[in-house]
Nucleic acid binder design. Sequence first.
DNA 1: TAGTGGTCTAGACCACGCA
DNA 2: GCGTGGTCTAGACCACTAG
Lengths: 239, 239
Amino acid sequence: MEPSAPPLHRRIRATIEARILSGEWPPGTRIPAETELAASYGCARMTVNKALTELAADGLIERRRKAGSVVKRPVLQSAVLEIHDIRAEVEAAGFAYRYEILKRSTRQANRGDCARLQLDKPVPVLAISSLHLAADRPFCLEDRLISLHAVPQGEAENFAVLSPGAWLIGQVPWSQAEHRISAVAADAGMAALGMPMGTPCLAVERRTWNADHPVTHVRLIYPGEAHALVARFAPSKAG
Amino acid sequence: MEPSAPPLHRRIRATIEARILSGEWPPGTRIPAETELAASYGCARMTVNKALTELAADGLIERRRKAGSVVKRPVLQSAVLEIHDIRAEVEAAGFAYRYEILKRSTRQANRGDCARLQLDKPVPVLAISSLHLAADRPFCLEDRLISLHAVPQGEAENFAVLSPGAWLIGQVPWSQAEHRISAVAADAGMAALGMPMGTPCLAVERRTWNADHPVTHVRLIYPGEAHALVARFAPSKAG
DNA sequence: TAGTGGTCTAGACCACGCA
DNA sequence: GCGTGGTCTAGACCACTAG
């Protein structure tokens, strides 16, 4: 059986995208108007419109009334990295995944907690340290703070089945997040990772809000040069 | 003057998005069929379709024929980080930007070069080391390899006006890229950054292809804990 | 002011995938 | 089967903006 042809709007999109990526239509080139393209493809304008709208959403072209659609200059270094779920990451690499809760406490947010969650005034918080292991070897150290104001059910949860991160997804939606990636030197608090002090580690911090309300702050420490965040991608999202 | 109302498909999208993010429609909830929504909004199905198609593209809902549209479990840990142009990054922080070319050479790709560019067989390459400075202080060390097979005009370029990265954008489009972020210890090769050996540094590596053809490999070293990659975002791209 | 994209309609047929 | 989304049409009017 022949594989059925992809939809027309997708073929139109692919054709134009190929011309841009090949350099045939360099940045600044004006793309034929929707009506012209519709005529040349022998289809309705709406079909062409869908293709061009997607290209614009992907940042390959810029569209303006009257001026028409022009090929955009690539935004250069602006690119995208996906940060995966730890369990999925470990299992995708072919290792057995396991985690341990190292420490757990409930308290009224202190000064440092307020800074981590960017709280205006103290609320009850749940602090959890856990260790993620790949094939029983330390993979990542997690230090998490959860606002019990946003997630009161956290107080009764023991995280026996799901790690704090995985559990939290099912509890509360998030409307905004902030990531921060940096390099730090291993200190005494990272002894669980079993590395000499001073070893470079990758630190990934994430803050999450739901409707302007702080939900959680997590700091993930990946040991040394052994780990890297990797992403492979094309300039168009939907490609 | 009243601000003119946003288009109908956008209002429909916003309404549904709000219900999902507020938790009113938790993951797994089935969204009314397009025909039902069209009836309740008193509009054509195409209009509802556009709204739902965008929500699906943003990963908020999942659509299947016959089964209908259901609210997706947020992928949480999967998130997005933008890596900005260095010059823009420095200037956005309010510092004067400057760069220096430290070293430059042309050669037939050696074993290490082939690995960096993922070349099958050696091609002529251009190797450039440069230092990016913010307010005359070292900000980032760049070590770049450019395939002269993909960008022959690089041989004659002196990079006096544009840094190698900025210059390269204008020369050749890219169809795919790979990023790798890790933590490394400062070594002798990073002396230009003026840091003690062993200091943790953030290393960002990027490989770029054009139509399966290697274009460049760059390694950016940011000194110590002073620098971090930060991104703030909402779950929906178009929000 | 005229050309262009932005939006919307009221239909249509088809493909998929649960029942 | 048959309900659902996927796609497409052949129009239409409007909003913006470059010339």
